[in-house]
């Protein structure tokens, strides 16, 4: 049965979409929201954003290392892509993992060149940091941040995505494998390779 039969009295012209946040109904699961998104329900997209935008911001900031302005674009692109891909959501991974998979694809398309990536690394200086007590500590911390950032950025793309999802976001490896369309064993191999490469980079030696 089509939705028009299930919702028979909604034939009247739909009111303008409400741009204001609605109360997040806890009774609606993430999966149901995605299902509603698949039907073009933008209110559901708004609720999905309210629930998960912080996680997506955090994930993208770690994955792409860009500033907040670029982050906004990436987050918006991620949720727009989620709206388009909602029909394909299979429910075999949590919605959070699914969103991270979409975000990683968005970043892959967004960051196409090493030059762009270097630009991101440079912009990292504008990212807010924790307050330090001494000027020397600030310099040291900045240097360490930049070294870690550079080391992560230097990872091959798949290793970087797996490392951020599994290690930093602590998402289940099984679900990461599903949303990235990889075998689970491949995920663990990529994670191991990323760890070895990162350790070598931070210790200043060849991996």
């Amino acid at each position: 049965m089509s939705i028009s039969n299930v919702v028979p009295l909604r034939r009247a012209p739909a009111p303008p979409r409400d741009p204001l946040p609605v109360t997040d109904p806890p009774s609606v699961s993430d999966e149901a929201l995605v299902a509603a998104c698949a039907l073009g329900e933008h209110t559901a997209l708004g609720v999905l954003f309210d629930r998960h935008h912080r996680m997506v911001y955090g994930f993208l900031s770690r994955l792409a290392g860009t500033d907040e302005r670029d982050l906004e674009d990436l987050v918006q692109a991620t949720f727009l892509q989620a709206l388009r891909a909602a029909k394909k959501f299979r429910g075999d991974a949590a919605v959070t993992t699914w969103l991270c998979g979409i975000a990683s694809n968005v970043v892959r398309h967004h960051v196409r060149s090493e030059v762009r990536r270097k630009t991101f690394t440079t912009k990292l200086a504008s990212v807010p940091r924790r307050p330090a007590t001494e000027p020397g500590a600030i310099v040291e911390r900045d240097q360490l941040v930049q070294r870690v950032r550079a080391a992560v950025d230097a990872l091959p793309e798949k290793q970087r995505v797996v490392y951020v999802m599994c290690e930093l976001q602590e998402l289940p490896g099984v679900e990461v494998a599903r949303v990235l369309d990889l075998r689970e064993g491949t995920v663990w191999r990529l994670l191991y390779q990323a760890r070895v490469a990162l350790r070598a980079a931070l210790e200043g030696r060849e991996a």
């Binding site: 997209l45 935008h53 727009l80 870690v148 992560v152 930093l168």
Partner: peptide, 28 residues
């Protein structure tokens, strides 16, 4: 080490609200 030095960017309420509005506008 990486968790501590790859900072999590968390948007403030105003940024989030702006991004939300832009998202719904773009979706429409």
């Amino acid at each position: 080490l990486t968790r501590a030095n790859l900072p999590l960017v968390v948007p403030d309420a105003e940024t989030a609200q702006r991004a939300r509005g832009a998202l719904l506008t773009a979706a429409a």
